[in-house]
Design a protein around this nucleic acid. Structure first.
Lengths: 137, 137
DNA sequence: ATAAACCCTGTAGTACACTACAGAGTAAAG
DNA sequence: CTTTACTCTGTAGTGTACTACAGGGTTTAT
């Protein structure tokens, strides 16, 4: 577990491209290391950081939100409660989206089932009505 | 329920801005009406369409996907079978999206629960560890 | 009749999250 | 020692979904 990664090694180890690393550096998510030789050397912690960012994005956080979380992580005066509040906000968003998608799913299923006769015209298909009228199909 | 809306009235009635309507027209989601007088007049169906688009977007579909769905709706020469195929594709997408969101939901919930003491410092907060270690907390 | 409010076309700018070079320098392998 | 692979800085382009004008014309209310 060395601590001297070129940008390419960092990229490879954290599962992103070199360009993405540069992008994160530019956005201030990763600190730009000062080059001792010709190339800049990144640390193992930078791998951790990028994986953190990727996971945060997967969990529905934006890059800026990921940056905020990283700053909380780095700033150890921050309290657990602050992180919790952010997570709870995201949970609300996620739950709302799931609810709506389930409505959509039911609508689509109902349409597929009602669409037994392939020769029927679209106007007789119920899905788009469900969509339009905002009703619980 | 008149059928002669100026762009401003259309925008107001469908809950978007005038610029957004123009954007949808430009993108081909709304048909550009030919002006009888000086101003173009939109129909009640355009209100329905914009609400349809907004609902589709809210449910996680892109503008292009919304356009596809609208095209199915509008083209009544399309047969039920064609719509069915698209609906089945969308259903797969919706189910995948729900699955991913449920994973997110579970992760976020476990994170929140593990963060019982708000006064703990971030370094002691398990939320960020969950993030970092890529484990199913 | 005139002023405010609205509409027209067209172009440019914004935010997000990258992605793709160009042109030059550096490091490592054979 | 030369070739290949990698790195550097910097700028520009992509796609999505708007948002903001500029510089006109039109409608409506008073």
């Amino acid at each position: 577990m060395k601590d001297e990664y070129t940008i390419g090694q960092l990229a490879k180890n954290s599962g992103v491209t070199v360009e993405t690393v540069r992008f994160y550096v530019q956005k201030g998510l990763i600190k730009q290391p000062t080059p001792k030789s010709g190339y800049r050397k990144y640390s193992f912690d930078d791998i951790i950081k990028i994986k953190f960012i990727k996971r945060a994005q997967y969990l529905g956080f934006t890059l800026n939100e990921a940056k905020e979380l990283l700053e909380l992580r780095v700033n150890n005066r921050a309290r657990c409660g602050q992180v919790k509040v952010k997570a709870e906000q995201k949970l609300d968003e996620v739950e709302k989206r799931i609810k709506d998608l389930n409505i959509m799913k039911r609508s689509l299923k109902k349409m597929i089932n009602s669409c037994s006769n392939d020769e029927k015209f679209v106007t007789e298909c119920p899905i788009l009505e469900c969509f339009e009228k905002d009703k619980r199909c």
